[in-house]
Structures are given as C-alpha cells and as structure tokens.
Amino acid sequence: MKKQNIVIIDYDAGNIQSVKYAFERLGITAIVSKDKEVIRNADKVIFPGVGEASWAMNSLKENDLIDLIPDLKQPVLGICLGMQLMCETTEEGNTKALGIFPVSVKRFTNEQKVPHMGWNQLDDLKGGLLNGIKPSDFTYFVHSYYVPVIEETIASCDYIVSFSAALQKDNFYACQFHPEKSGDVGVKILENFINL
C-alpha cells in the first residue's frame, strides 16, 4: 500500500473514527483535522459526514471550510452526507451546499421505506475509484436523500429510483455508500482511492 498523507476533514459531523480506523486497517494513519493548511497539503482528502445537511453546512461554515473544499486540487473523497454536501443544494433543511457536482439532492419518496438502509448492489460501474468492483457486489447504504443520476455518476444503485451511488468530476470523488462499512468490497474501494 502506498504510504501517503491522508487527511480526514473534521467538522464535528460524526463517524470520523470509523473512516480513520478503516485506513488504519490498511496500514495508513490518517490525520483528522480542521486546519486549512493541513487539509490543503494532504495527498488525499476524505470528506466524511453523518448527520443532518443544514447542521453540517453550518458546521463547515463555523470552521471556515466552505471555500476551501471546492478549491482542493488533490483527490477528494466525499462519503455519504459528504457526497451530498458536494452537490449544489439539498432538500434536507433546504440547504445550499458546496456546488462541486451540478445537481440537487432530493428526498426519497415514501413508496418504500425511508431511510434506504442496508446492503445494496451497484450498477453501471465506470472503473477508476470502482476498479475491480462487480455489479453483484454489495455496499452499505444509510440515507434518506439521494443524488439523481447525472453525467458524473460512476455507479448507480436502485432503491425507489435509480440514483447515484458514486460520482466523479476531475479530482472530486464521492460515494453515497459507506466504503468503511462495506466489508471487503469497501476495502477494495478505499485501496483504489489510495492508489489513484
């Protein structure tokens, strides 16, 4: 495994330990930081997030990170709420987000149970971050809001609608599922990110 400086953005939005531990299992000690210089100088940046969107955006604002994230040049991986905050807006709390991906995050309709919670299979896989992942592979999802399928979608998933399970635009990568909680499939995806 490539040794590198991976920084997890700390903005008090939960689940950061799980991501840190996932890298530890791969032999990498990720740095958890809200320091702009530390984040800017990382080889790779993880933008995690569990929680409510408007609360999380407020927290990014309080930590003065709103302008920094879209401006990063190294590979950035948004996870779950992190991915949703990389979009333009989200219906959750009618929140304006970071605007990296040109799409609005929507709430699932109640045709089936919401949140979409549990293991689901990926589809329309487009390599890169998802190299070696097969459509039969399962990843773990927990979310009530979704990113519609757009040009930047590199994997989709079906639940109520077909939605973006992963996105990529330039150096920005994102996944709706939790790679750190997706067993061996998630490990492979994190390895792919490290090897980008």
């Binding site: 939960g14 569990v50 929680g51 409510e52 609360w55 709420l81 949140p115 919670m117 927990v142 009530s144």
Partner: peptide
Amino acid sequence: LAKRFGSQC
C-alpha cells in the same frame, strides 16, 4: 437526536 445527528442513526 434526529435533528442533531440525522434520523438514520
């Protein structure tokens, strides 16, 4: 809790 951490947890 739902407001602070999200319903999903």
